[in-house]
């Protein structure tokens, strides 16, 4: 068990807040650069996301009339805190092979807190368009949660002996090869990546933010430093979700020699898939998204878990 001082350092600097934020922001740069190349533009320099956040921190905050201040300001913070805890749990399991704070179920639940935070914050803003965005965000959670959970437990079913502990899942993969070697887990991985797209509210699932009709929906009334927190949380999610999938399906993170390079390749590959889907698909309607996730994606996920239980 880590001492309190260690825990502070883990949480604030590495692998918690600071590290996750920096890598997350760098990843958003990759996102912007790749998007730019897809659209035949040059794209921003690497420090652009940092400059953006710093600039937001210096701006004033405008709170709409009738907003419930505490909820409006506190909700995004809770999301930031939760994603930091998740990042820390994943990295400590990968680096030291110890369970910290909790197991996989805690990870899944903590990962919904940023979305809940956005919903509560948007509801508290008393903006009607943000209300519509909040409603859509919640429906989106409902839509992807079903196949996402099935995909996660497909991986758990392949671990023997079955365990929810992150370190046990990693140990199993170190001894028996990565879970992605099984056909069932390949299906689960595809499902998980699709759900990641919705979790990040990336197109085609940017329905709650819908720039054209809701003008950024859930984020609409946020400005200045608090918008910075919202953007930072999104960036950190973009970093944390691929790390979760690498941990679950793809043998985890390695830190020595070629392993380090391999880890980076795995990470960039997952991120690039997300970015490419983002850039090549128009936004769908919320009912289409619900039908997509509850229909074909869930069926795919169920096929995956049945294959897993059949031993494949």
């Amino acid at each position: 068990m880590a001492s309190t001082l260690n825990m502070f350092i883990y949480f604030l600097i590495f692998p918690g807040l600071l590290f996750t934020a920096v890598v997350g922001l760098l990843t958003t740069w990759v996102d912007r650069k790749v998007s730019a190349r897809v659209q035949w533009r040059v794209g921003p320099p690497w420090y652009q996301p940092f400059a953006d956040i710093l600039k937001l921190l210096g701006k004033e905050i405008v709170i709409p009339e009738g907003a419930k201040r505490t909820g409006f300001l506190l909700a995004p913070m809770a999301g930031l805190a939760a994603v930091t805890v998740v990042s820390m749990m994943l990295w400590l399991a990968n680096m030291q092979g110890v369970g910290f704070v909790g197991d996989l179920i805690a990870v899944i639940y903590l990962l919904t807190i940023p979305s809940i935070g956005m919903i509560i914050g948007a509801s508290a803003s008393s903006n009607p368009l943000a209300s519509v965005g909040a409603s859509r965000e919640m429906k989106l959670i409902l839509a992807y949660e079903l196949p996402f959970v099935i995909a996660i437990f497909t991986a758990v079913s392949k671990v023997s002996p079955m365990s929810l502990k992150l370190e046990a899942i990693l140990e199993h993969q170190a001894a028996n090869g990565v879970l992605l070697g099984h056909p069932s887990c390949i299906i689960a991985f595809i499902v998980a990546v699709l759900c990641m797209q919705a979790k990040l509210t990336y197109p085609p699932f940017d329905i709650p933010e819908a720039e054209t009709e809701l003008m950024d929906g859930t984020h609409m009334e946020y400005s200045g430093p608090i918008l910075g927190v919202v953007k930072l949380t999104q960036a950190m999610m973009l970093f944390t979700l691929p790390v979760l999938f690498i941990t679950l399906f793809w043998g985890g993170l390695q830190f020595t020699g070629w392993g380090l390079l391999y880890t980076i390749v795995k990470y960039v590959l997952i991120v690039t898939i997300a970015i490419l889907i983002k850039n090549t698909n128009p936004r769908v309607r919320i009912d289409q998204a619900v039908r997509f996730f509850w229909g074909p994606v869930t069926v795919l996920a169920i096929i995956g878990i049945i294959l897993a239980l059949a031993g494949l």
């Binding site: 825990m7 809770a78 930091t84 805890v85 910290f100 704070v101 996989l104 365990s163 929810l164």
Partner: peptide, 16 residues
């Protein structure tokens, strides 16, 4: 099969 420390989780979220 799993473990969870609610008090540490709370402490960290409060710290955040």
């Amino acid at each position: 099969i799993g473990s969870f420390s609610p008090s540490i989780a709370t402490g960290l979220i409060l710290l955040g």
